[in-house]
Simulated assay, not measured.
Amino acid sequence: MHIHKIAAFTKDGRGGNPAGVVLAAKLPLPAEMQSIAATVGYSETAFAAPTGQGSWTLRYYSPETEVPFCGHATIALGAVLCETHGPGRYRLSLANADIEVESGMQEGVWWSALRSPPTRSAPADPALLAKAFEIFGYSDTDLDPDIPACEANGGTNHLIIALRSRAALTRMHYDLARGRVFMRDHAIGTVAFVFRESERVFHARNAFAIGGVLEDPATGAAAAALAGMLRDLGVLHDGEIVIHQGEDMGQPCRIEASFTNEAGSPVQVRGLSNKIPE
């Protein structure tokens, strides 16, 4: 079984978030997929099997658990499908949703654009936010007054907290074990901290303790959730946002998310990818 290793959401040919991609005639058993993901060691590995012309069944595993949706692994999958089956649009059936990824080549570089599941968001529960402050060392004074903290979903649940300064984002830290318990108890995929540099440019850091990873350098699922949330709040109308992530880790990533004004509609998340040398 060949494991493709792809860096998704690269920025200027550098960085990116590593993902494993396995194409198989049929999906391995869950225990085998979990074992492979743990061996690969990336934040997620995607497993895909064909179900028909241009259609695939898809599952995602972190080193410690199955996850319902992973944006960067879907972007990586798009690159692998482009390489093995040619540029095009591919329909993907997840455990709880149907999405698609389109992929191609541009000046010798893979690009992929996924369509997320439908999005939704709601203001964060004050008790949940207080617990997050305790774990991550923030307070009300660190918050961006124009973007309320929300629980948002674009395929996976995220707690999204907007901070008022890049310096506040830089100092994000927490204990992995405490973060894992917090995310597990509240069914949170990541805690995403964001800073709004300008109207449509954001910086992000995403804690992914529930997957056994301190920080994710690029999180496409959270990007979809953020874009849907900004639309729900009326902060932005249809268009595109750019998210820079991974810079504080030395793994710069660039994520583009575009959306319409239709409430709850899917978000398109786009990025470039590179093959990771063996």
Rank of each mutant, 00 (worst) to 15 (best):
P126F: 01
E215H: 09
G52Y: 01
A127S: 15
K5G: 01
F202E: 02
A76Q: 07
F136W: 15
T119P: 04
G228W: 07
R200H: 12
A7H: 05
G108M: 06
L233S: 02
P266W: 05
D12H: 12
A187C: 11
P277C: 09
P217M: 05
S62G: 05
L236H: 02
A168W: 01
Y174Q: 06
A227F: 05
E134N: 13
G104T: 08
H203S: 11
G211Q: 04
F202W: 15
S112C: 02
G108S: 06
C82Q: 15
D140L: 15
E215W: 10
I135N: 10
D216F: 02
V235P: 00
A204C: 11
A221M: 06
V109T: 14
V201D: 10
D175S: 11
A73R: 08
E44F: 08
G88V: 12
S55L: 07
K26Y: 10
V213Q: 06
G16A: 08
A177N: 13
L92C: 12
E240F: 01
Y60K: 05
G108Y: 07
H173E: 14
E278W: 09
F182W: 09
N17R: 03
H203E: 12
G52V: 02
V40P: 09
R171Y: 04
A177P: 00
Y42G: 07
D125S: 12
E66M: 08
T119Y: 02
Y42I: 09
G155K: 09
V235I: 14
L214Q: 14
P50H: 03
A227Q: 06
D175H: 13
P118A: 08
L176Q: 14
G154R: 03
L23N: 08
I99A: 14
Q34K: 14
Q34E: 14
E66Y: 04
D142C: 14
V67A: 07
A187R: 14
A38V: 02
T190F: 08
L23Q: 02
L77A: 01
L128F: 04
I161D: 03
L230D: 03
T10H: 03
G228M: 06
A224L: 07
A130P: 03
L58R: 06
L23G: 10
S112P: 01
